[in-house]
Amino acid sequence: MKNLKILKGDNGKDFINEVLSISRTNHVNIVTLLVFCFQGNRRALVFEFLCNGSLEKFIRGGKSNSSLECETMFNIVVGIAKGLDYMHRGFNTQILHFDIKPHNILLDEEFHPKISDFGLARLYP
């Protein structure tokens, strides 16, 4: 779940853009949006649960028990590339993410990556 802070002068345009961007996708390497809330000053996104959390904890954690094997890391990189390719060329409207980083790559129980956090994403016809 992602709760969004409302800044002074925020009319919800960025939130609506994020919902529109992610709701147009349907790919194995992009996180699935289950529901969203845009009521008064409440703004939240609820995504599918990915039990291994973000890639960041595996590459910046520094713990030997949280490191990934080379083959697993390779498969993660390929999955991210497939997700980006889909966003750029998968359908009529392109999505430019602008915020790909380890924190925004979530991993399921089998370490399949899913791109998340479309807050800075832009639709490009």
Rank of each mutant, 00 (worst) to 15 (best):
L55M: 04
E56T: 06
K57H: 09
K57W: 06
K57A: 09
F58S: 00
F58T: 00
I59L: 07
I59D: 04
I59R: 05
R60E: 09
R60A: 11
R60Y: 12
R60K: 11
G62T: 06
K63R: 12
S64L: 14
S64N: 12
N65D: 14
S66L: 15
S67L: 13
S67D: 06
L68T: 02
L68Y: 00
L68S: 05
E69I: 04
E71H: 10
E71D: 13
T72S: 04
T72H: 00
M73A: 15
M73V: 08
F74N: 12
F74E: 13
F74W: 15
F74K: 13
F74G: 09
F74M: 11
N75P: 01
N75Y: 02
N75Q: 13
N75D: 12
I76Y: 06
I76C: 10
I76S: 08
I76F: 08
I76D: 07
I76M: 08
I76Q: 05
I76N: 07
V77Y: 10
V77F: 13
V77S: 13
V77M: 14
V77A: 15
V77G: 10
G79L: 00
G79Y: 02
G79A: 02
G79Q: 04
G79N: 01
I80R: 01
K82M: 02
K82I: 00
G83L: 02
G83F: 00
G83H: 03
G83P: 02
L84Q: 01
L84D: 03
D85S: 10
Y86N: 04
M87K: 07
M87E: 03
M87N: 02
M87T: 05
H88F: 01
H88M: 06
R89N: 15
G90Y: 02
G90A: 03
G90C: 00
F91M: 09
F91A: 10
F91W: 12
F91S: 13
N92Y: 10
N92I: 07
T93C: 11
T93Y: 07
Q94Y: 06
Q94P: 01
Q94L: 09
I95N: 01
I95A: 00
L96C: 12
L96A: 06
H97N: 03
H97T: 10
H97D: 02
F98S: 06
F98A: 08
F98N: 03
F98L: 12
D99P: 07
D99V: 09
K101C: 12
K101Q: 13
K101G: 12
K101I: 11
K101Y: 13
P102S: 11
P102V: 07
P102C: 10
H103L: 14
N104G: 00
N104F: 05
N104A: 01
I105V: 15
L106A: 00
L106S: 01
L106N: 01
L107F: 10
L107C: 09
L107Y: 05
D108G: 04
D108P: 06
D108F: 08
E109P: 04
E109D: 15
E110K: 14
E110F: 12
F111E: 00
F111M: 11
H112F: 12
H112Q: 14
H112C: 13
P113Q: 04
P113F: 07
K114Y: 05
K114C: 04
I115M: 03
I115L: 08
S116M: 08
S116A: 15
D117R: 09
D117P: 10
D117T: 07
F118T: 03
F118S: 00
G119I: 02
G119E: 05
